[in-house]
Nucleic acid binder design. Structure first.
Length: 319
RNA sequence: CGCGGGAUAGAGCAGUCUGGUAGCUCGCAAGGCUCAUAACCUUGAGGUCAGUGGUUCAAAUCCACUUCCCGCAA
């Protein structure tokens, strides 16, 4: 009924709902594209262009670029402390605001603005993993399942009522980057699914059994060979494609790009290099195989190539 | 002008400081050996030493500039 009304009012094109989209990284791009296809995305908010790389080139966010390609107005407020930034959003009269990995806390005044609410695409099965880094945490913890929750935002951090969920299995060797890519597609489908069926969806309140997914701290990327092979493998996966897990050897920092758990046991001390396939003894007698690495200043290479030009002796003990 | 590393055979590297025959570990090709292997033996092909200019009897190597690649930091 509501849709009919809107359709009649804007009968010139099939786009109906007026949406303001807020998002920043690649993860948000599939959702934005889907929304542009089906609805009327009247404005996009994203983080301001940042200097990036060795040459400090000002780089627009992936969302920023897609928005411009579609001739959608882009706003890049530094924060919402300035009331003018809030007024700017109100000017677009959004029916709904869709948020996906935006990077700024959104004040309640904006959350209450659109008549169909402020909807967030969150990359976990809430209430598990509230916070900034749910995908990485899921991989790091070796979760077998991950997913997306579409939720209605309130003033808390990922605490609002849940609207739609979808979970997928996480294969044992999937990296953070691969999982993020899959989830971003699922998120884009789910948000459209929600918008089209929103009249039939009942909000569900979150239970109190929540966990948090904080950002990774500096130092967490360093490999401790005392941990089990599975734990180290999860760290390697969770930090791929950035910033990668690392270990030290003769003063060189070596990034461990890909690994796998070897289904055998060893009685050698932890850190021992077991053979020329770079199987390493880890905690509790478990074994981790190093598949590809990167030296600083070098490219990502497989273990065999690496050993052709870099000496690691069998029997050496890595710290 | 944020800090740093690099470009040498298909891959990964040494050689550069101290100029003087283009090397190593692999891969590839051919042959041999083995019950067998990311095993071993023999032989072979494969290079504009990133580019341009300079110094020199002589430059991968020293000097200047250019292009491209990568790590850190944000």
């Amino acid at each position: 009924m509501t849709e009919d009304f809107v359709t009649n009012e804007i009968s010139k094109n099939s786009k109906k709902l007026r949406i303001v989209f807020m998002g920043t990284p690649e993860f948000a791009v599939p959702a934005l594209k889907k929304l542009i296809e089906k609805y009327d995305v009247v404005a996009v908010l994203t983080k301001e262009p940042k200097p990036v790389g060795r040459k400090m080139i000002l780089t627009k966010s992936p969302v920023h670029i897609v928005a411009e390609e579609n001739n959608i107005p882009v706003l890049t407020p530094k924060s919402f402390k300035d009331p003018l930034n809030i007024t700017n959003i109100q000017m677009y009269h959004p029916d709904m605001i869709v948020v996906c990995a935006y990077g700024l806390i959104i004040p309640e005044k904006i959350l209450l603005e659109p008549k169909y609410g402020c909807i967030n695409i969150h990359a976990s099965i809430l209430p598990k993993y509230r916070g900034a880094n749910p995908i990485q945490r899921a991989v790091l913890n070796g979760d077998r399942m991950a997913g997306i929750t579409i939720m209605s935002m309130d003033k808390g951090l990922d605490t609002g009522p849940m609207l739609l969920k979808e979970a997928i299995p996480v294969p044992q060797n999937m990296t953070y980057g691969e999982l993020e890519q899959e989830l971003s597609i699922i998120g884009s489908n789910l948000i459209v699914n929600y918008i089209d069926n929103r009249d039939n969806i009942l909000p569900q309140h979150q239970t109190n059994e929540f966990t948090l997914a904080p950002k990774l701290e500096k130092g967490e990327e360093k490999i401790n060979w005392q941990n089990t092979a599975t734990n180290i493998h999860n760290l390697v996966r969770a930090l791929n494609p950035r910033p990668y897990a690392t270990f030290e050897h003769n003063g060189n920092t070596i990034k461990l790009i890909k690994s796998e758990v070897v289904n055998e046991q060893t009685d050698k001390p932890t850190g021992t290099v077991l053979n020329n396939k770079l199987d390493i003894a880890c905690g509790k007698g478990t074994i981790l195989r190093i598949l590809s690495v990167q030296k600083s200043g070098g490219k990502i290479i497989d273990t065999k190539s690496f050993l052709n030009g870099y000496k690691i002796e069998i029997g050496e003990i890595l710290k």
